[in-house]
């Protein structure tokens, strides 16, 4: 009955609100940004591996080849760094010590994924790029589980 009186009172004179929230100030987190960057790394890796160097002596073709190769490498480098950054934001800003209860391997997963970002920069390795995407898929699962939401994994490519 008292609860009903309070509700009535609130209708007449609404109480000011106080936040016991996390949504307002927390910002928006989603592993999708890391996934898109990792997909770009995989795509660039495949493109670099598929390049055929021109015949020696053809200067114009040689320059065009180098230009294309340099661009692919630059994009791979940049996107791998972006993926690492997005992962670190999730790791250090979104996840809290309490999440370790449900995801005890959380640190291992992020460490592994961040290292794969570096390895994708250091080499042209399709396996590593695929592993990075798989690691982000695992993080995607852990992330949405922590939010008690079912969000299917998909890729743009």
């Amino acid at each position: 009955m008292f609860d009903r009186i309070l509700e009535q009172l609130d209708r007449i004179s609404p109480a000011p609100e106080a936040q016991a929230h996390c949504d307002g100030p927390c910002g928006v987190y989603d592993p999708a940004s890391a996934r898109i960057a990792a997909e770009a790394v995989l795509s660039m890796t495949k493109k670099i591996l598929a390049l055929t160097p021109p015949a020696p002596g053809d200067q114009a073709a040689g320059i065009a080849f180098l230009n294309t190769l340099a661009r692919y490498i630059a994009i791979k480098e940049e996107q791998a760094e972006l993926a690492k950054h997005d992962l670190l934001v999730l790791w250090t800003d979104y996840f809290k010590p309490d999440h370790l209860k449900d995801a005890p391997n959380l640190h291992e997963m992020f460490w592994k994924a961040a290292k794969l970002c570096s390895e994708c920069k250091q080499s042209v390795n399709e396996q590593k790029a695929s592993d990075l995407l798989k690691a982000i898929q695992e993080i995607h699962g852990m992330f949405w589980k922590s939010k008690k939401r079912e969000v299917p994994w998909y890729t743009a490519a």
Binding site: L9, D10, P14, A15, P16, E17, A18, Q19, A20, H21, C22, D23
Partner: peptide, 16 residues
């Protein structure tokens, strides 16, 4: 002062 709590971070004592 009477206040209304919003959010769930003070559960179980205070609910939304």
């Amino acid at each position: 002062a009477r206040l209304r709590v919003r959010g769930t971070s003070m559960e179980p004592w205070l609910s939304d």
